[in-house]
Computed example of a mutant assay.
Amino acid sequence: MLHKKLLTSLLLVAGVTASLSVPAQAASTYYTTNPGIIRVKKTVIYYKNAARTQKIKAIKKGHYAKISKVVTTGKHPVLKTNTGKYVTANKAFVAKTAGYQNPKKYYQVNYTQIKPYGKVGYTVKRHYEGIKTWKIMRRLGTANGYNQYNQATYNAVKAFQRKHGLKVTGNVNQKTWVKLGFSKSSFKSIDSYVAPLGAHAWNGRSAHIEAMIHQAYKYLGKPYLVGSSSKPIYGTDCSGLVMQALYAGGINPAPISAIHHAYPGNEWNSRNLWASKKFQHVAYRNRQRGDLVFYYQPGTHTIWHVALYLGHNKVIESWPPRIMVQPIKNGQRSNIAGIARVFH
């Protein structure tokens, strides 16, 4: 009799425990506090209202969203996005995340403004290139269609310095720059330009690709200028254009940088980008919008050009005489070394 009563008691306790565990488990399957940023694990529906009676569209796996708050007025909590849409709070469908990011072995995506890498306000010397060299050569009348600080420019700078009582070095520091008629602030602002970030942590892969392309289009029609990678009011060369596009997408390929791009020998940063192991190299047939297209020089087979793939066999590139949209292969350059993927 005692054993029977004990058994009955145990069964009752077990039943109570089981009944309590069901709602506890159910509650744990939903976010009840703001997760901040979510990534969609399975296809979900975006709704216009918290009651989820007005559908907007289906959102596929891999989508990211910023959540403004958790709404608990209905049977189950729902998440309100920063764009005013509503989505399930069910953890089986959405996961809390720090935001969109590349796998660790590739370049990591920055979500704070990328800083200039190198000396801001560098002195311009022989064999330097870039925007400051271009401006100096035009001012002194030594421009020859190739903005490299040549011997003629060096001699012209020395003559200018003698005439204006400056220390005669043949190099252009800030004092000589200002005496040439340029603003003091521009001596550093030209160097320090890094394209602003064009995508957030709660934006997915597509938004980062579009940020790159949007930045590249800001230079459309500007002149091809060797060793240049600065503000959209100026021109660039091929890798200078790509670097600013990368910055806008949140990618910092340091020690390859916009500043160092003007230094002697760094005009071939297309080669350094190609050699980087922090990009994934994919087959040409698998190219996608936002990939980098690298070309080699006929005969030498060395990398000499890089462009940003737009899709539909088009690229945006800086190629003499200017930044333009062109077919991926044309009569000027068609020898493709390979494709590098920026975002995953």
Rank of each mutant, 00 (worst) to 15 (best):
F160C: 12
F160K: 11
F160D: 11
Q161V: 11
R162M: 14
K163T: 15
K163F: 12
G165N: 14
K167T: 13
V168A: 08
V168C: 05
V168T: 13
T169C: 07
T169A: 09
G170S: 11
N171A: 15
N173E: 01
Q174C: 02
K175P: 09
T176N: 01
W177V: 14
W177I: 13
W177F: 14
V178Y: 12
K179D: 13
F182P: 07
F182A: 05
S183Q: 13
K184T: 13
S186K: 15
S186Q: 15
S189F: 12
S189H: 14
S189Q: 15
D191L: 05
S192I: 09
V194I: 15
P196T: 05
L197W: 10
H200Q: 14
W202P: 00
N203E: 15
G204R: 09
G204V: 07
G204I: 05
S206R: 13
H208S: 10
I209K: 07
I209G: 07
E210P: 02
E210T: 13
A211Y: 02
I213C: 07
I213Q: 10
I213G: 02
I213F: 07
I213K: 06
H214S: 15
H214Y: 11
H214L: 10
Q215P: 02
A216P: 01
Y217F: 12
Y219G: 01
G221F: 06
K222D: 02
P223V: 03
L225T: 13
V226A: 09
G227C: 09
S228W: 03
S230F: 06
S230M: 06
S230W: 01
P232R: 02
I233E: 08
I233D: 00
Y234I: 01
G235R: 00
G235E: 01
G235M: 00
G235I: 00
T236A: 09
D237C: 05
C238P: 01
C238G: 01
G240H: 02
L241Q: 00
V242F: 00
V242I: 12
M243A: 00
M243R: 00
Q244F: 08
Q244E: 13
A245K: 01
A245Y: 01
L246H: 06
Y247C: 05
Y247Q: 04
A248G: 03
A248M: 06
A248W: 06
G250L: 07
I251F: 05
P253C: 05
P253D: 08
P253T: 10
A254D: 12
P255F: 02
P255R: 03
I256S: 03
I256N: 01
S257Q: 09
A258V: 11
H260W: 07
H261A: 08
A262Y: 04
P264Y: 13
P264V: 13
P264D: 12
G265I: 03
N266L: 04
N266S: 13
E267Y: 12
E267F: 12
E267Q: 14
N269A: 07
R271D: 12
R271Q: 15
W274M: 07
W274P: 02
W274V: 06
S276G: 10
K278I: 03
Q280Y: 11
Q280M: 14
Y284M: 13
R285C: 08
R287M: 13
Q288V: 04
R289W: 11
G290E: 10
G290T: 08
G290A: 07
D291W: 10
L292I: 12
L292K: 14
V293E: 04
V293Q: 05
V293L: 07
F294E: 04
F294W: 02
